[in-house]
Nucleic acid binder design. Structure first.
Length: 265
DNA sequence: CTAAAATCCTGGTGGC
DNA sequence: TGCCACCAGGATTTTA
């Protein structure tokens, strides 16, 4: 489940092999992967050079020379590979982007949830996303301001991409633990002090994930090792690293949620 | 407005 | 050993 740190790691790894390359064609193997009509993709993509690759929330953003934007969302099981055109194609590859150097960018996605978009205006894809939690101008007061007039439980709000972009199930649970806040809390009961702790916890969890090159999970190997540093996520019944109490698991907003019943209030 | 459920998917798992 | 129901989960959509 690639979240912000995993996507950031993938983006950094793709710049070397892809920036400056020109797409020469595209082969769609699972049509639902492509949100843009296949015929339009086949017509507009070839000839466009990759000027830069950035990340917005959990989206990869390929800035193209004709002004178009190619977006890829990996969802649950997506991965991106740059491989020689002559090499074998893994059965889970859903789309192939042909490059001008005998290589291909291959979108591999076992569960078929991932999506590809080619648009003229980036806002058509990422226009409704909330702020970037690691941006320099995303201050503690900006964070606290987001909570004004918001209601509901904390965990689902952290997962809401139009609230803040990039946080997924792993980093939401880890952030709540670091902040010492129960993910079931109603957000309108959070004090200014607690919001301050949560701000630093979110940034720390995401930074730590990036430092470890993300987490390798779900049979998708990306070289990251943050999965060895989870404090609560996926550790139901295991001792809390702070107090030793067994980590509990509940379902919130349809998502499994892990927390320490003693350290998080 | 919030909240929960359904939807899309497949491979791994656990039960029998 | 083999079969199968069940589960995970990001984002969207539907229903309450």
């Amino acid at each position: 489940m690639p979240e912000l740190p995993e996507v950031e790691t993938i983006v950094r790894g793709l710049r070397g092999p892809l920036v400056g390359r020109t797409f020469t064609g595209v082969t769609v193997l699972w049509p639902k992967t492509v949100q843009t009509p296949v015929s339009e993709l086949e017509q507009r993509l070839p000839g466009q050079r990759v000027e830069q690759i950035t990340r917005r929330g959990k989206y990869l953003h390929f800035h193209l020379s004709a002004g178009d934007s190619l977006f890829i969302h990996l969802k649950m099981s997506g991965d991106l590979l740059v491989e020689p055109s002559a090499g074998p194609v893994h059965p889970h590859v859903r789309a192939i982007f042909h490059l001008d150097n005998g290589h291909q960018l291959r979108f591999k996605d076992m569960r078929k949830f991932g999506r590809v978009y080619l648009v003229d205006d980036p806002l058509k894809v990422v226009g409704k996303l909330g702020p970037e939690p690691l941006a320099d101008d995303f201050t503690a007061s900006a964070f606290a301001a987001l909570f004004r007039r918001r209601r509901g439980r904390l965990k689902p709000l952290l997962l809401n991409q139009s609230f803040i972009a990039g946080i997924g199930n792993i980093y939401a649970d880890e952030s709540c633990f670091i902040a010492g806040i129960d993910p079931r809390r109603q957000v309108d009961t959070l004090s200014a002090e607690e919001l301050g702790r949560l701000y630093h916890a979110v940034r720390q969890a995401l930074q730590s994930g990036i430092m470890h090159k993300g987490a390798t999970l779900d049979q998708v190997y990306r070289g990251g090792e943050f999965q060895h540093h989870f404090q609560v996520y996926g550790r139901t019944g295991a001792p809390c690293p702070r107090c030793g109490t067994a980590i509990e698991r509940v379902v919130l907003g349809g998502r499994s949620t892990h927390f320490c019943p003693v350290c998080q209030r």
